[in-house]
Amino acid sequence: MSIDTETAAKVAKLARIRVEPDALPALAAEFNTILGFIEQLGEVDVEGVEPMTGVTAQRLKRREDVVTDGDQQDRVLANAPDAREGFFAVPKVVE
């Protein structure tokens, strides 16, 4: 299937990446090249094959459901572009 500029704009929106309208045709063309390459997967007989989630057969380790870390507010906020009064500050979220 072929991706048009409208679909490219929708994908950019979903990915939260601003793409200027005049860049959309080139983006759509790149998507089509990559998806054209991926289309080969359609040739493979995958009847009855389980989709793989991880390569190791082991069951993931579990641990006690207890707090093991925390109380590091200053360090958590140390790299924030805008931190105020112990919080991450962001632009207005709700009108």
Partner: peptide, 18 residues
């Protein structure tokens, strides 16, 4: 994304198993 997850992502994961 919805509508392509099976066709692309799940298919790729099955091929990965093979």
């Amino acid at each position: 994304s919805a509508g392509f997850y099976d066709a692309y992502y799940n298919r790729a994961r099955k091929v990965r198993a093979l």
